[in-house]
Simulated assay, not measured.
Amino acid sequence: MSVLVVIPARYASTRYPGKPLVGLKGATGVTRSLIERSWHAASAVAGVDRVVVATDDDRIREASEAFGAEVVMTSSDWVNGTERCAEAHAHLGGGYEIVVNLQGDAPLTPHWFVEDLVTGLRAAPRAEIATPVLRCDGATLNGFLEDRKAGRVGGTTAVFDSRGQALYFSKEVIPFTSASYADTEETPVFHHVGVYAYRPQALAAYPTWPAGPLERLEGLEQLRFMENGRAVLCVEVAAKGRHFWELNNPYDVPKLEKMMAAMGVE
């Protein structure tokens, strides 16, 4: 029942080149790189057998090894983290029951998000990939809508059926709602958290499939599974008062630092 966590990290990000090495200042004023903070987040997850950084860049390798991470070098041809995870798992000889992709731009991912995700995938034998979703409150939903009005890509949203099987993911805000919500009020919109847990057979097959039109339009790697008829399980997780955000663009840095200060993250 072994679990491998892979942190895919590339230097040549389209929206934010060098992103894994960007420094983030914590509550005590200590600055650590994004990749180091993501590694610490992965290492805090219970029930994990191994954590590795998967990259194609020597600068990221050197920085990661300096703070004690195990690094797997992967091809520079991959376009997303799932492809990089597939190569890393193969490079390590396979054999893991579940492979988790904890993307290197999400250092505030709570450990229970990943723990609940692994539990959810184990309990759903027909699912080949699972990913967390977090119900938006009014403040989060309004932030998404403001981003879209300003032409910015904020969070990704998800819709799923009564069994939790994904129907679609989008960088638009779905489903449409015309209602207005107070900041602390629950909404019908779910924020997709960019973490994935894969069964190894589905992960190995992923790089053999060409990117489909929906994946190319949305820029969302999980849509490749859906476009190839594979079931994606959405596992609802609880924030428990914890702030969560991903570093997608340079203007996210002060937002993350503010959240870390509020939560006392060093």
Rank of each mutant, 00 (worst) to 15 (best):
L203P: 06
A204G: 04
A204S: 11
A204R: 08
A204P: 01
A205D: 10
A205E: 12
Y206A: 05
P207G: 03
P207T: 06
T208Y: 12
W209K: 11
W209G: 08
W209F: 12
A211L: 05
L214M: 13
L214K: 15
E215L: 08
R216H: 12
L217C: 12
E218F: 13
G219W: 08
G219H: 13
L220T: 08
E221C: 06
E221Q: 15
Q222L: 15
Q222G: 10
Q222C: 11
Q222N: 15
Q222I: 15
L223M: 10
L223D: 10
L223I: 12
L223W: 09
R224S: 11
F225P: 06
F225M: 07
F225D: 14
F225H: 08
M226T: 04
M226N: 07
M226Y: 08
E227I: 12
E227H: 09
N228A: 12
N228D: 05
G229W: 11
G229T: 01
R230N: 06
R230T: 13
R230Q: 10
R230G: 02
A231R: 14
A231H: 14
A231I: 08
V232K: 01
V232A: 01
L233R: 01
L233N: 03
L233Y: 02
C234E: 00
C234V: 02
C234A: 11
V235G: 00
E236W: 02
E236R: 05
E236N: 00
V237F: 00
V237Q: 00
A238M: 09
A238C: 10
A239C: 03
A239Q: 00
K240W: 01
K240N: 05
K240D: 05
G241I: 03
G241C: 02
G241V: 00
G241W: 09
R242Y: 03
H243Q: 08
H243P: 03
F244G: 02
F244Q: 01
W245E: 03
W245Q: 04
W245I: 06
E246A: 10
E246W: 02
L247H: 00
L247D: 01
L247W: 02
L247M: 11
N249A: 08
N249W: 06
N249H: 09
N249S: 07
N249Y: 12
P250S: 07
Y251I: 05
Y251D: 13
Y251P: 05
D252R: 02
V253K: 07
V253L: 03
V253R: 11
